[in-house]
Deep mutational scan, measured.
Amino acid sequence: QAKEDFKKMMEEAKFNPRATFSEFAAKHAKDSRFKAIEKMKDREALFNEF
């Protein structure tokens, strides 16, 4: 479920497709859906799949 929420957050964010993961992470670090994925490498993997 956390992965689905994370993907939904990325869809809602409508970020620049050229944005890096660190830019995305800095902007969304306080979002509970971002925090729900415990490991940063897992967050980055989901970001890269998107």
Rank of each mutant, 00 (worst) to 15 (best):
E11S: 08
A26W: 05
K14T: 13
K39G: 11
S22C: 10
A36Q: 08
D5I: 01
M40S: 12
F24T: 01
E38P: 14
A36G: 12
K27D: 13
F24L: 03
F21E: 06
N48H: 13
A25I: 09
R18K: 12
A25W: 02
I37K: 00
T20Y: 01
Q1F: 06
E12W: 02
N16R: 07
E49N: 13
A45I: 09
N16D: 15
A2G: 07
K14P: 11
F47Q: 03
N16M: 09
M40N: 06
E12A: 05
F34S: 06
F15Y: 14
S22V: 13
E12Q: 05
R43C: 02
A26V: 11
A29N: 09
L46C: 07
E49C: 05
K41R: 11
F47K: 06
A26Q: 11
A45N: 11
F34M: 03
S32N: 12
K3Q: 14
F34Q: 15
R43Q: 03
M9C: 00
K41Q: 15
F34Y: 15
A29Q: 12
A13S: 15
F34N: 00
D42A: 03
I37D: 04
F15I: 15
E38D: 13
F50A: 04
F24C: 00
A26H: 10
K3T: 12
K30R: 10
K27H: 10
A25S: 12
E4K: 08
A26P: 01
I37E: 02
S32M: 12
F47H: 06
K14R: 11
K30N: 14
K41I: 15
E23K: 01
S32D: 10
R43S: 01
S22Q: 15
R18L: 13
F24S: 01
F47R: 02
L46V: 06
E11T: 11
A13P: 06
K8R: 13
A29P: 01
A19Q: 15
K7N: 11
N16K: 08
S22A: 14
D31M: 00
K30A: 15
K30E: 14
E38Y: 03
F47M: 04
K35E: 11
K14G: 14
K14V: 10
I37S: 02
D5M: 04
K3D: 05
E11K: 14
A26K: 11
Q1K: 10
D31C: 00
R18C: 14
E12T: 09
E4H: 04
S22P: 12
D5L: 01
E11M: 14
E23T: 05
K30V: 10
N16W: 02
A13Y: 13
M9I: 05
K8F: 02
M9W: 00
K8P: 01
R33G: 01
F47W: 13
F34G: 02
K27W: 08
F34E: 02
E44T: 02
K8L: 12
A25R: 06
L46R: 02
N48Q: 07
F24P: 02
A29E: 15
